[in-house]
Design a protein around this nucleic acid. Structure first.
Length: 357
DNA sequence: TTCTATGATTCGGG
DNA sequence: CCCGAATCATAGAA
């Protein structure tokens, strides 16, 4: 049983691939001129058929021998002819497909998040977007920002190294395949278009891998973003200084505790509320909204605080004298009928300050 | 843990 | 859009 394969290999011309062909060649009628040529062709075919069974060096040598064979041009022509007949069916399959909408979406998202696109600008743009999307106060907030930015940078780096790796691998592979095809084109007919098509297939394959990378990068960014936004939901109290500044304004404008847009901006600046302008004004507005409602709800509870700030304002006003803050200027005289005596006394203080001013 | 203070959000009204 | 009001959710104190 195991004698036969050994025998075949020892001949160097295995017939495993095409026993029938070999048989036919051997059974052919002997003696004629055509017989010799047939035998010749049979040899070539056998060599081609079995070339993959051999070791690399062996195959290389045999390939060279085949290339130099006197029958090679004829065989090449035959292959060309066969190809000519079959190639049309392949052509139809190649169509320029439109750019994948999903890929475009991913690209846009990555660009918007600052993962793709220019290194520096992308990062700050993302940070700005994050800043706009979130709120926060001064120092502790910027720590969150830098954390977010650091993570985003990390993601960007991974993304770019991976992308580069894929691109390099793709190029390497393409070059390799092209070399191989060029090499093969000496023994079998390969048109440049076919090479092009092959390259296209490779690129498509690699771009589908890239899409996976983009997809998971997007996912990572989304997760990071949602975590960051979750962190935003965690309320951060204003620091003591900010609260004092806001309270100062509130109690010195008790008759009309409705800061204008400019006043809000000014207060936000003083309190070092460092987010986008819109957001920080909102934060000041929130504070005043809460303060007004809570003060009104329970004036008694705020009495002490009110007196304290009123006193402070008065002292400031007195000491500063003529240079009192411009902010201290209640535009409307007290209109609230239910005002407590605390409020009244406050009013007199702030009025005092205004008068001094 | 519970309780309170407080920033944020939501909703209806003007 | 801004307001008051109610409500939510969490930070920080007890």
């Amino acid at each position: 049983m195991d004698e036969q394969p050994r025998l075949m290999h020892s001949h160097g011309v295995g017939m495993a691939g095409h026993p029938g062909l070999a048989q036919h060649m051997q059974d052919g009628t002997a003696g004629t001129d055509g017989e010799g040529r047939k035998q010749d062709i049979g040899d070539i075919l056998q060599q081609i058929m079995t070339i993959t069974d051999q070791s690399l060096d062996e195959a290389q040598a045999r390939k060279h021998a085949l290339n130099c064979h006197r029958m090679k041009p004829a065989l090449f022509n035959v292959l060309c002819e066969i190809k000519e007949k079959t190639v049309l069916s392949i052509r139809g399959a190649q169509e320029e497909e439109p750019p994948d909408p999903q890929l475009m979406r991913l690209d846009n998202m990555l660009l918007a998040e600052g993962v793709a696109g220019p290194e520096k600008g992308g990062g700050s743009a993302a940070a700005a977007a994050a800043a706009a999307a979130t709120g926060g106060v001064g120092a502790d907030n910027s720590a969150e920002h830098s954390d977010y930015r650091a993570k985003l940078t990390q993601i960007r780096q991974i993304y770019h190294t991976e992308l580069e790796k894929y691109e390099q691998a793709c190029n390497e592979f393409t070059t390799h395949v092209m070399n191989l095809l060029r090499e093969q084109s000496r023994t079998r007919p390969i048109s440049p278009k076919e090479i092009e098509r092959m390259v296209g297939i490779i690129h498509r394959k690699f771009s589908s891998i890239q899409m996976q990378l983009k997809q998971s990068t997007c996912e990572a960014v989304m997760i990071l973003r949602s975590r960051f936004l979750d962190a935003r939901r965690k309320r951060r109290n204003f620091n003591k200084q900010a609260t004092e500044i806001l309270n100062e304004y509130f109690y010195s404008h008790l008759s009309n505790p409705y800061p204008s847009e400019e006043a809000k901006e000014e207060l936000a600046k003083k309190c070092s509320i460092t987010v986008s302008q819109v957001t920080r004004i909102n934060k000041v507005s929130n504070w005043f909204g809460n303060k007004r409602i809570r003060y009104k709800k329970n004036i008694g509870k705020f009495q002490e605080e009110a007196n304290m700030y009123a006193a402070r304002t008065a002292v400031t006003a007195t000491s500063v004298s003529a240079h009192g803050s411009q902010a201290n200027s209640p535009s409307t005289p007290n209109s609230a009928g239910d005002c407590s005596e605390g409020k009244r006394s406050l009013l007199s203080y702030s009025d005092f300050a205004t008068v001094l001013d």
